[in-house]
Measured scan of single mutants.
Amino acid sequence: EDNEEPDPLPDNWEMAYTEKGEVYFIDHNTKTTSWLDPRLAKKAK
């Protein structure tokens, strides 16, 4: 069984939802937002 907990978001990142219910990510370090999960970006490298 694969019950892995997702990795926590990096420091100062926040997950948020648009009015349409779409997930996006806020990077408080750089005051930017991203559609890409920063956790996935790390694994892709």
Rank of each mutant, 00 (worst) to 15 (best):
K42G: 12
N3M: 14
N29Y: 08
G21V: 00
E14W: 00
P10M: 08
K42E: 13
H28N: 04
A16V: 06
K43S: 11
K31T: 05
T32A: 10
N29D: 09
N12G: 15
D7G: 15
F25V: 00
P10A: 03
D37A: 04
L40R: 12
V23E: 11
P6K: 10
T18F: 00
L40G: 14
R39Q: 03
T32L: 07
K31N: 14
D11N: 12
D37Q: 02
N29V: 10
Y17G: 05
Y24G: 01
L36G: 07
Y17V: 12
Y24T: 00
P6D: 06
E22T: 06
N29G: 11
R39T: 05
K42S: 15
P6Q: 14
E4C: 12
G21T: 01
E19W: 06
G21I: 00
T32K: 06
T30H: 09
E19V: 10
M15C: 08
L40T: 12
D11C: 10
K20M: 12
I26H: 02
A44R: 10
K20L: 10
D2C: 15
W35T: 04
N3Q: 14
V23L: 10
Y24L: 03
S34W: 01
P8M: 13
N12S: 07
F25W: 09
P6C: 10
K43T: 11
A44Y: 15
N12R: 10
L36N: 07
A41R: 10
P10C: 02
K42P: 15
P6Y: 11
T30V: 05
I26C: 06
W35Q: 05
N12Y: 02
Y17S: 11
Y24W: 03
P6V: 13
N3G: 10
N3C: 11
W35F: 09
T32N: 05
W35P: 01
H28E: 02
P6G: 12
D11V: 10
N29E: 10
P6R: 13
E22K: 07
K43N: 06
K20P: 05
P8D: 08
N12V: 01
W35I: 03
K20R: 11
H28F: 06
L36V: 13
R39M: 02
W35D: 03
S34R: 02
L40E: 13
T18W: 01
G21Q: 10
Y24Q: 01
E19S: 11
W35Y: 11
W13R: 02
V23A: 05
S34L: 00
E4R: 15
F25M: 02
N3F: 11
D37W: 01
Y24S: 01
T18R: 00
D2W: 11
D2G: 15
D37L: 01
Y17P: 01
F25Y: 02
Y24C: 03
E14R: 04
H28A: 04
E22Q: 09
Y24R: 00
E14G: 07
D37C: 05
E14A: 04
K42L: 14
P8R: 14
F25E: 02
N12W: 06
N29A: 13
W35K: 03
D2Y: 14
E1P: 12
E14K: 07
D2L: 14
P8S: 10
T33I: 03
K43E: 15
K43R: 13
H28Q: 06
A41L: 06
K42Q: 14
E22I: 03
L36S: 08
T32C: 12
K45S: 14
D2V: 14
L9S: 04
D11L: 14
E14C: 08
A16Y: 04
P10H: 02
K43I: 08
D7S: 13
N12T: 07
K42T: 08
I26L: 09
G21Y: 05
D7V: 15
I26R: 05
D27V: 00
P6E: 08
S34V: 01
A16E: 07
G21M: 08
D11S: 15
T33W: 01
R39H: 04
E22W: 03
T18Q: 00
W35L: 05
E1A: 10
G21S: 07
T33C: 13
T33L: 02
D2N: 14
L36A: 09
G21F: 05
K43F: 08
T33G: 01
E1R: 15
D7M: 12
W13L: 05
K20Q: 13
T18Y: 00
Y17R: 14
K42V: 14
P6L: 12
K31D: 05
T18P: 00
D11G: 09
Y17W: 13
K20E: 13
E19N: 13
T18N: 05
